[in-house]
Each structure stands twice: as structure tokens, then as C-alpha cells.
């Protein structure tokens, strides 16, 4: 459904943040993209939704296909209209608007007022927490509530694919659970998910397939079971290793890791 072929993304025509990545998200799947800080995960999502313009970034080579249509460097509004919505990193609610208004903005492309109201109703059914907060100013919600709100706002566009960037960042375990419950619920309802996470164990628990990104490249991919059982993933991203102690990331030489991953 979504295919990236050798996509390169540059900021300011000098910083190559994504160095030719290839990945596929199939319909109805949940695919996760994990990796450390600065790996290029957010950049990849911003390249797909094409909201990197304000940061002076652009896709410099490769192709992005949604279905069989090229969507690279298209207007963000066309990409949303095509059925992809990007939930950006950092719980970007519209802080001065109410929960209701935030959701309405999410559904702004729909011309029929009745359809928008129907979506709003079903959104409050899907996320009852938000129903109690309808008239509250979004900026004053708790982190967990804001995360639910931005996911709900994305759903208001009636997308086929939602890309979510680090929904668990900075949330308490209980709130993380609530967010991931919502995500698996969406998945059950047939929404395709592309999930970027640092919290790999949570991500792998709902994902079907995963990619590990490092330094702008994909260094490892596999089904979530394969990744969960992979020694390096256990060590670097799940914080487990055979001896039961956590090794520092830098201790193992890069070539060795690559060899093991590729072999």
C-alpha cells in the first residue's frame, strides 16, 4: 500500500538525514520503525506527508508510492486527501482550541457537515475519555489525553493509513497502555499503521513487521517476532542481553553489528 524506494531526504540541501531507505507497508498491517535518536525516523515520516518544507527539507531522490500513485513531493493536502495522515511527534494539539474544535479541524476536508458530525460522534464512542473533555482547551489536557486527541484528530480525516511518531514519549505506563490499546483497536478496524517508536517493546507488541533505522539507513528488518528474538535488537532497543546486563551502545563496533544483521 505504501512503498518507499531508495528515498533520500535532505535538509537545507546539505544535511542528508535519510540515506536511501526502502520500506513497504501493506494494507491492514502495523509496521514499526524503530531506532535511536537522530536515526531519521521522524524525517522519514515528514518526507512521506511532505511537511518538511518549513524545515527546508525535501526528498532528493527515490520514489514514494501510495497504492500505485507517486506521492513524493506532493502538496500535503493532496496526501491527506489520498488517505495518509501524519500524527507528528510531540503531541501537537491545537492548544488554544477545544477538544471538539481540534477534532473538527481534523475533519476539515469533508464538505458534508452531517458526515463530519457523524465522525465526531463515532470518535467520541471510540475514545470515551475525549467525550468528557469536549469543551476543554486542548493545551490544558494531560499528556495522555493530548496523545489520544491527536490520534482522534487524525482519524477524523477518515484515513487509510496513519503514521504516528513516538506516541509513548514522556507518558506514564498507564497512559502508554491506553494509547497502545487505541492503536490496536484502530488496527482491528482495518486502519493501516506506520508507527515510529523508541519504546520498541511496546511497538513490537502490536506491530506485524518492523524496520530498524540507524544513521539514516535501515539496518535490519523482519517480522516482529524475528526482531524481538534478534540478539542486537534485544540488546540495544529492548535493553536485554544474554548476560542480563545492559551493554553500552558504542562498545560493539559498527561493522560487527552490520555483519551480524546482514548475515
Amino acid at each position: 500500500m505504501l512503498t518507499l524506494n531508495n528515498v533520500e531526504v535532505m535538509y537545507s540541501d546539505v544535511i542528508l538525514a535519510v540515506k536511501g531507505i526502502t520500506l513497504t507497508v501493506n494494507k491492514g498491517q502495523c509496521v514499526t520503525l524503530v531506532g535511536g535518536n537522530g536515526a531519521g525516523k521522524s524525517t522519514t515520516l515528514k518526507a512521506i506527508s511532505n511537511v518538511i518544507g518549513p524545515e527546508d527539507g525535501r526528498v532528493t531522490s527515490g520514489t514514494i508510492l501510495f497504492g500505485d500513485r507517486r506521492i513524493d513531493n506532493r502538496e500535503p493536502s493532496q496526501i491527506v486527501a489520498a488517505g495518509i495522515v501524519h500524527v507528528m511527534e510531540g503531541r501537537k494539539v491545537l492548544r488554544h482550541l477545544t477538544v471538539d474544535q481540534n477534532l473538527l479541524v481534523g475533519g476539515h476536508m469533508e464538505r458534508s457537515g452531517r458526515e463530519v458530525r457523524r465522525r465526531l460522534e463515532s470518535m467520541y464512542e471510540l475514545i470515551p475519555r475525549l467525550a468528557q473533555l469536549k469543551t476543554r482547551t486542548a493545551g490544558y489536557l494531560s499528556g495522555g489525553e493530548q496523545q489520544l486527541l491527536v490520534i482522534g484528530r487524525a482519524m477524523m480525516a477518515n484515513p487509510e493509513l496513519i503514521m504516528i511518531d513516538e506516541p509513548s514519549l514522556g507518558l506514564a505506563p498507564l497512559a502508554i497502555e491506553e494509547v497502545f490499546n487505541l492503536l490496536s483497536h484502530l488496527k482491528q478496524n482495518g486502519i493501516t499503521l506506520l508507527l515510529v517508536e523508541q519504546n520498541s517493546s511496546a511497538a513490537l507488541s502490536i506491530a506485524d513487521y518492523g524496520y530498524v533505522m540507524e544513521n539514516g539507513r535501515i539496518v535490519l528488518e523482519g517480522t516482529s517476532d524475528e526482531l524481538r528474538n534478534n540478539e542486537d535488537v534485544r540488546e540495544f532497543y529492548l535493553g536485554l542481553n544474554v548476560e542480563g546486563e545492559r551493554k553500552s551502545y558504542r562498545e560493539i563496533k559498527h561493522y560487527k553489528r552490520r555483519k551480524r544483521w546482514l548475515g
Binding site: P54, S77, K92, L94, H96, L97, Q101, V105, R153, A157
Partner: peptide
Amino acid sequence: FNRTRAGLRMTAVAEDHQVAMSLGIS
């Protein structure tokens, strides 16, 4: 700015250009 579709879009733009773009607002 608070009640209409076009106005809410403009309020979203007022809050954050990038977020507005991510929601498909021009």
C-alpha cells in the same frame, strides 16, 4: 475563526504551520 470550517483552518494555521499542513490544510 472558532465556528466555521474555513475559520478553524485559519486558526490552526495561526497555531502552527507545520501541524496545520500535517492535517492537510493549505
